[in-house]
Amino acid sequence: MISKQEVEYVAHLARLEIDDAQKDKFTSQLNDILLYIDKLNELDTKGVEPMSHAIAVTNAFRDDKVVESIGTESSLANAPDARGEFFRVPKVIE
């Protein structure tokens, strides 16, 4: 079971805010899902190689050849806040 504290911790890791009103609902929904997921523990998977790709492709490479970049203007075109040739962000508070 996931606790409210864990929900807070996970939300912080994911950079999300969950207000107190939502927290209970969220916690109980997550618990429903996790409870369902727990059925996997019925299975013995000892020695089974975990599968991370659906198809066994290996050695997909690219040559070391420069292709013209899209340029500073284009890089910054979608930025919510750009100054000069930079993306601008609020300072990290230490």
Partner: peptide, 9 residues
Amino acid sequence: HNPFSYVDL
């Protein structure tokens, strides 16, 4: 001087 940081990728 300002509460900002600038990002160069």
